[in-house]
Design a protein around this nucleic acid. Sequence first.
DNA 1: ACATAATCAATCAAAATCGTTCATAAACAA
DNA 2: TTGTTTATGAACGATTTTGATTGATTATGT
Lengths: 250, 250
Amino acid sequence: MLTNERHAYILKKLEKKQTVKIQELVDETSASESTIRRDLTELENQQKLERVFGGAILPGRNLIEQSVTDKSTQNLNEKIQVARAAAELVKTGDSVFLDAGTTTFQMVPFLKNKDLVVVTNGLTLLDTLNEYGITTYLTGGLFKPKTSAFVGSQTIQALKNYRFDICFLGVNGLHEEYGYTTPDPEEAAIKLLASSLSRKTFVLADHSKINQVSFAKIMDLENAILIIDSMPTEKLDAYRKKTSVKVAHE
Amino acid sequence: MLTNERHAYILKKLEKKQTVKIQELVDETSASESTIRRDLTELENQQKLERVFGGAILPGRNLIEQSVTDKSTQNLNEKIQVARAAAELVKTGDSVFLDAGTTTFQMVPFLKNKDLVVVTNGLTLLDTLNEYGITTYLTGGLFKPKTSAFVGSQTIQALKNYRFDICFLGVNGLHEEYGYTTPDPEEAAIKLLASSLSRKTFVLADHSKINQVSFAKIMDLENAILIIDSMPTEKLDAYRKKTSVKVAHE
DNA sequence: ACATAATCAATCAAAATCGTTCATAAACAA
DNA sequence: TTGTTTATGAACGATTTTGATTGATTATGT
């Protein structure tokens, strides 16, 4: 039996029965347990199924929703705290830019019923925004699967057609001297542009980003208001000399 | 056994069984393993099949993906046939526009390894294109959940930044007098614009669309080459007086 | 909580398959 | 004839897939 045939067999059975057991597959395909196990891990990598102890089940959802359910998000509770505080700053009827990122993503549920127009370059946000009935424009552009974000000149071009009341940016680094930074220069360019098109700019971060410096600089601390879940008092004083800081409390 | 005979034999068997194994072919044709292997690589270059370890499978959408494919698509086999014929027209290095739609979606598997740049306004295509490692630009714009397509002025604006070697459009209606039509005027506008930005335009349809008229007109028959799975002879003659028609055969 | 059984990930060696090279033989052209 | 092209099969080392083994991990029954 060819490798592909086995894979097809497994998926067909999975679709029909909802679950498959390794031992059954060993009997039915007369391949060794090792081979079946390898097949399953391979198919799991292709997101065609999900491994469980002793077999496999149908995968959770489609690609878009999967990244939503991503439990690997670090500091989730802190991010939600920040996201809620940020969402409270949005007024009914505002035009809003939401950066691609996990923190901005958490804002979406808090934005419903505000009659907004939202523009984003993050694919993951699109689905959820639509789910909450929020009118959404996607910038488009070159798609980067790794971050599920759109970047590049087309994205820049598309952005320039808009003016925002308010924009929210996620960052990876937050440093008194080096300002706000992020790993990808292309995404940095987008963030900076969005900020310049907005009347107000807010940067979202959790405390783990303090004193971190990523590769590409976005802007100086002075040019945006920081929203963060918590910050040591002495740091806070120092930062407040440079910019506004809003600490999100439960 | 002659080379051509072997090739025909292999393809016939492949058609019937979905997969062929090299060892089987060696036994059945009493040719050496080397010869069979040469046959398979040759047929792969002709895109008639796809090599896998130990044998070959049908090209494009392989067994695995077939079992996962959304079966709710009407006339799937016809669409795949059309899609394959369409994909053969794409040359290495081309810049391609793919319309949002189920038929264009079926083209994706046949486009890999062609080093393309693809632009689309269909969200469903994005995932699959990336899966096959194809550089993809999404137009962006206002998202219509119903068709998973982006439309509106921003989409138009974004499109105008491109020029395409070749563009493929799906249609809902196909009529001698009324030309190509589709239910949504906004999508019609996108299709028309894309066509005007392309050196060559192909319209994809299956035979169920013949004589149908949808709400919004896209263009006259003259302005694009039609690719269809089959068409009654007398119709075909009539159409051929107006435009080029390519009938996809197995 | 404990013991037992099932499953797991990792490793290794054997087997199958791969791509390549080379030599032979048939088909073809000058 | 002679030389050239084309198809073929055999042989080689390289690569991929496979199955068995091991000790660790997880589930299950008492």
